[in-house]
Amino acid sequence: MTADPRGPAAVAAAFGRARAEGRAALVAYLTAGYPDPATSRACLAAAAAGGADVIEVGLPFSDPIMDGPVIQAANQAVLDAGVRLDEQLAIARDGLAGAGVPGVAMTYTTVADTRGWTRFADDCAAAGLDGAILPDLPVPEAGPWRAAAGARDLATVFLAASVSTDARLDDIVAASVGWVYAVGLLGVTGVDAVDDAATRILVDRIRARTSTPVAVGIGVRDAGDAARVAGYADGVIVGSALLRAAADGDPAGAAGRVERLVADLRRGVAGG
């Protein structure tokens, strides 16, 4: 890899490459430290090897209200194993080292805010991460985070929902650096399937406001879902399905299972 871009430029380049290939970008979510630190590092590398364009690294929180049972259990398992934030960030750094794809932290406000917005931004940057997503931090509360992230040249991805008003969408696209995260349904991760009709309208409303890529997450379960969503969005985000694959059997085989599923999803986002 020669002089890879960092931060928002790296994310933009990843979406740009996918667009140049005539497909949607694949964003893969994995929880740092799950099912154990070594396997987690291998799974992150495997997701990149399997063809993910961007990787979301989940930093566990004890009370993840946007997450369904799969990601909840993964978060709790990592915390129960005593894997703390610095080790989670080190797993992200090592797992993605040399992978050539941007990594973005995904965690909750309480974790980032307790570390301190500036220090959290510093720590993400030091771990080689290119940005962060905080699903319970809406734009009106995000001033200190945006300032800290901007100073470290980190992407700040905000969530938009079908129920967001036009005025809120204006604020969300203005604050989003990297991509805009359109939620594929009203609900939590890993339970129901994408509501295509409502999500398509949401993606169109966002696109009318910005040239920043729009990626759809929550409710994308398999290559078929990914192919359908790729028909109307710039990116497709998959999380719970990958954690299920990682946990479904012997840890030694986890990276292989993740790589195969990512490759399958990658065929999905390219049109099946």
Binding site: M66, T109, D136, A160, V163, T165, I172, L186
Partner: peptide, 14 residues
């Protein structure tokens, strides 16, 4: 105080 919630709830709180 404040309102630290997923975007899906913004409309309901308003």
């Amino acid at each position: 105080g404040g309102r630290f919630v997923p975007e899906a709830l913004s409309g309901a709180l308003d």
